[in-house]
């Protein structure tokens, strides 16, 4: 069988769990395995009913009063018992920040490791081959897992479509009272930093800068281009880390996820963490001096060269075109 992790906060679903269900359903069909969803919670989780509408054999509610708020110790203990009780072949999860926090610990408890952040898999005569992106997106690696089950696999956000998760049937909801040992970390309540002053998810056009912009002074040049286009200015993580632009302009897994009509990436190489935040843009335009930069793999239009040569020409030509 396959176990799939349902992530939630206060019984509100993390939607990437639906992507994990889609992945698990695909693997289940390929290998002839049934699927159960696992929801750790401190009560009769309000999510269980919703998840039971998907095409699953069971929904297992792993219940303990210490599972109300996520901790790596609590989740690992709970999962350990579910796995021991069910003997799964695969444990499938979405590669979220929470999963990154506890899945390797859980796998280690079984003498295993995680094949993490996979972007796809294929079935070779009943043996699964997973593809991971390595070297900041510059290369792909096909990976197999040796040894016996359970196998722990996580998939990158967007690797599968959550709305492709098949419904139908009504899975049995089963409560499993799990024991949780000492929790060695004390969580405080999660919070959002000062509300973002700009909501880039509503932008029609975004001009985003990466390392290639080189210095804070040069941000102005990108701003001129953004102004000429009527676009909002955004950035990849290193730019916000350096505080050249405020963090509310950051696009990517730790920043905002956007889908504007047009996304212009200036000097952004296209690390996975950035790409997950903008790959659904209508038209992606990349300008980068490195012809091998991964950003070109997802771009509709590309220019290889120095952004400082391109930006003034763009501004001038846009102004001409508009007048």
């Amino acid at each position: 069988m396959i176990l799939v992790f349902i992530e939630h906060k206060d019984c509100v679903l993390n939607k990437t769990s639906l992507e994990a269900i889609t992945a698990a359903q695909g693997i289940g069909k390929d290998l002839g395995l049934k699927i159960s969803a696992v929801i750790p919670c401190d009560k009769d989780c309000a999510l269980a009913q919703e998840i039971s509408n998907y095409d699953l054999e069971k929904v297992i509610m792993a219940k303990n009063e210490k599972l109300g708020i996520y901790t790596p110790d609590g989740y690992t203990d709970a999962w350990e018992q579910v796995i021991k009780a069910t003997n799964p072949t695969y444990v499938i999860m979405a590669h979220t920040y929470q999963v990154r926090d506890f899945a390797p610990k859980l796998a280690a408890r079984f003498g295993k490791e995680v094949v993490g952040d996979c972007i796809r898999y294929r079935n070779e005569d009943g043996k699964l081959v997973f593809t991971r992106r390595i070297f900041l997106g510059k290369l792909d690696a096909d990976v197999i897992i040796e040894g016996d089950a359970p196998y722990f696999v996580t998939f990158q956000s967007g690797a599968f479509r959550g709305d492709n998760a098949e419904k139908g049937g009504s899975a049995n909801i089963e409560t499993m009272d799990v024991e949780v040992g000492e929790i060695r970390m004390k969580p405080e309540a999660p919070f959002q930093e000062a509300k973002a002053s700009i909501d880039l998810t509503k932008s029609a056009i975004i001009v985003a800068v990466g390392r290639g912009i080189k210095s804070q002074e040069n941000i102005e040049k990108a701003q001129e281009l953004a102004d000429a286009l009527g676009a909002d200015l955004a950035a990849s993580r290193p730019i916000c880390d350096a505080e050249w632009l405020p963090i509310d302009r950051q696009i990517g897994s730790s920043g905002q996820t956007v889908a504007p009509k047009v996304y212009i990436a200036l000097g952004i190489s296209g690390a996975i963490q950035h790409i997950v935040g903008m790959k659904n843009a209508g038209t992606i335009i990349a300008i980068n001096k490195d012809a091998e930069a991964p950003i070109f793999d997802i771009a509709d239009y590309g220019i290889v060269g120095d952004i400082f040569d391109a930006m003034p020409v763009l501004v001038e030509e846009i102004k001409k075109a508009k007048s």
Binding site: K138, D140, D142, V143, E146, D148, D300
Partner: peptide, 17 residues
Amino acid sequence: AAQQIQKVYMPLKTKQT
């Protein structure tokens, strides 16, 4: 239980650029 890299390669392009 090690994961083993079978092959590394340039990513397949998903888009015509």
